[in-house]
Design a protein around this nucleic acid. Structure first.
Lengths: 215, 215
DNA sequence: CACTAATGTGACTCAAGGGTCACGTAGAAG
DNA sequence: CTTCTACGTGACCCTTGAGTCACATTAGTG
């Protein structure tokens, strides 16, 4: 009912909670956190609503967990990008690409779009702080790129908002059962969006290969 | 209570309905259509919830009206862009810029982000069709730009999604009481986003002038 | 096999929010 | 001044959905 098999009792807890997060993320991302029902989430797992409460404190907690997971993923991706990239622009490219792919892999959703007041409680502020921190990091990278010559001069705030808009919007149109794989989409959208900042953009961009292997 | 003064009785109706649309759009855009209460909308106008029902059939109708208004604006803006622009890229630039500015002026909000199932009823399908039609128009323009050499080769669908993401995302971060005017923001974000498609991008972009005159 | 802890369920409570209604009031018209 | 109509209101109804609880069931453990 939950998933296939195996590990020792206490680790099951974590797996099941993870499964709930995935299911919830999928529904939040389509209907918004307000439009989503805990019963929806439960149904999509083939479980009763009450069962969820063994793994989740309440709806707010669930939203919070999804949000934090997504922020962790974004943060790790950016760190990896900073490690691998040569110029600042490359760092951003890699960071965003890994973000999209990892979101699909771990939450099953390319991005989480939450309403402004989706969360309440003091944890909401902590989460907001994390998001600010991520955006600040991105802005610093843009400034760095303007220094190293890889990124065109432009207001860093606007540049970052533009990039994040393009990335987050993927949640609105990407369908996992479509013709494009997560990697294809991530490459295409990130290449295109970051081309806006590129001081020496290549004239042509990659084609869109169809999905070859299912899953 | 509603607005300042004047016109003959029956025209008041239209004005008041328009005021409701603006108020609703503002709240929808911050809280999502599900998170928004009709009482919120009423309160923000200093009116009781019941009063709204003189001008609006129900919540669905209100959402629908906002949505359609936004689509009309987008459509008009694109038509204007097609009339004024030389290359296809210019047409897109002008169309998007006018869209952002007009949304701010007429709905008081840079964009409407609605959840997938915000609307129900058959009108929802009609609205969806309009949105599709707009996106198709945009894709055709991208293809046209690839033909006339102003736009870089790239999958038109992805290109349009990327542009619309950057544009719609403005609703998430723009604050009317901030330092930037609507025109400033529209220019900056559209120039930056469309630069991604530009075959001959200028190396540098405009600075961000502060707001000089208040409103 | 008996015992216990963990897990899941259906039936419930309760608050919030969409929508309605009977009424009060103000302003145009005779 | 009276009357009619449009407008707005407070109080209300009713559904939906968050959260709880007593109970059944299952799975480890001696």
């Amino acid at each position: 009912m939950w998933n296939d098999a195996i590990p020792d009792r206490s680790a099951q807890q974590a797996l099941k909670r993870k499964a709930i997060l995935r299911a919830a993320a999928a529904i939040f991302s389509r209907q918004g956190s307000h439009g989503a029902t805990l019963e929806n989430v439960a149904d999509s797992l083939g479980v009763s609503k009450a069962a969820l409460y063994r793994y989740v404190l309440n709806k707010n907690d669930l939203i919070l967990a999804c949000q934090e997971e997504a922020l962790e993923i974004a943060d790790r991706a950016l760190t990896e990008g900073e490690a691998q990239g040569e110029t600042a622009l490359e760092k951003i490219r890699i960071g965003l690409r890994l973000y999209l792919v990892a979101m699909m892999a771990e939450l099953g959703v390319p991005a989480l779009i939450l309403e402004d007041n989706a969360l309440h409680g003091e944890e909401a502020a902590r989460t907001q702080a994390k998001r600010d921190s991520y955006e600040t990091r991105m802005r610093r990278l843009v400034a760095e790129g303007q220094a190293d010559g890889s990124i065109v001069p432009a207001e860093p705030k606007v540049a970052v908002f533009m990039l994040l808009g393009a990335i987050h919007w993927v949640a609105k149109w990407y369908r996992p059962d479509g013709a494009w794989t997560p990697e294809t989409v991530a490459d295409a959208i990130v290449d295109l969006a970051t081309r806006a900042l590129d001081t020496s953009p290549v004239p042509a961009l990659a084609e869109m290969p169809e999905r070859t292997q299912q899953h």
